[in-house]
């Protein structure tokens, strides 16, 4: 399926100069009509310059703000530039850019507002650590209680229409890691979510989201976010 005009493919990137060129080439091959935007989140390895030399528009944070903040900068840019559809994917090669049209399709057709490329809907060779897996299951259950039935809420491979983009520009969007709490907020505001099965490779960095004491902080923060959202 062809991706319509007015599409931005965004990649938040932090110190990804080595892996980014291959990803950008694959994105350009998959969706030649789309504007490719890299959000350089204060990298020290010249990620922004590498992205620019490969033809991407580069939004450069003056210092590291966090993955969620980088995504929000992308959404703000998309909103300002009048894009109708945003596809986001990770810059480390975890996601296959050839699957962008498939993830974007349900949003482009108006079937849903937000499509999440999920590694759990279909068989994938992605493996998680035990703590990450346990956390995922816990919040999957809590999300279901809150009305969100998504198997892979942490997936960075998503397609969003303008309505979702505008919502995610609001201050509630977390600067670190958006998770099921954001999906709960979206669902409560009437956003229609759909999952699309995608293949996902393990991140070359290993678990990029959590680890050590951060797992406990993550559980605490998620419970607090879900509670805050439930009181809204």
């Amino acid at each position: 399926m062809a991706v319509p005009a007015g599409v931005i493919v965004g990649l938040p990137a932090y110190n990804e100069a080595a892996r980014l060129p291959a990803v950008l080439r694959a994105v350009a091959a998959a969706v030649p009509a789309a504007e490719i935007v890299v959000v350089d989140d204060g990298s020290a390895d010249g990620t922004g310059d590498v992205a620019a030399s490969h033809g991407a528009s580069v939004l450069r944070h003056p210092f590291n703000l966090g993955y969620g903040a980088a995504l929000q900068t992308l959404y703000k840019y998309a909103l300002q530039s009048g894009a109708e559809l945003v596809v986001q994917l990770d810059a480390d090669g975890q996601h296959d850019p050839a699957e962008i049209p498939r993830v974007a399709a349900p949003v482009a057709s108006g079937e849903c507002d937000l499509a999440i490329g999920s590694r759990f809907v279909a068989q994938s060779d992605y493996r998680m650590g035990p703590v990450q897996g346990l956390g995922r299951r816990l919040f999957s259950v809590l999300g279901r209680i809150a009305g969100v039935s998504v198997s892979d809420p942490t997936s960075g491979f998503q397609a969003l229409n303008r309505r979702v983009v505008a919502l995610y520009c609001e201050p509630f969007f977390p600067p670190d890691y958006p998770d099921v709490d954001v999906l709960v907020a979206a669902t409560r505001r009437g956003i229609r979510i759909r999952e699309v099965p995608v293949e996902m490779r393990e991140s070359p960095r290993g678990s990029t989201l959590h680890g050590g004491m951060r797992d406990f902080y993550y559980v605490y923060k998620m419970l607090l976010s879900l509670w805050t959202e439930s009181r809204r």
């Binding site: 959000v39 939004l59 944070h61 003056p62 703000l65 903040a69 929000q72 900068t73 703000k76």
Partner: peptide
């Protein structure tokens, strides 16, 4: 910082 990135 986001505004700086957008303006830049």
């Amino acid at each position: 910082a986001q505004e700086v990135a957008l303006l830049r």
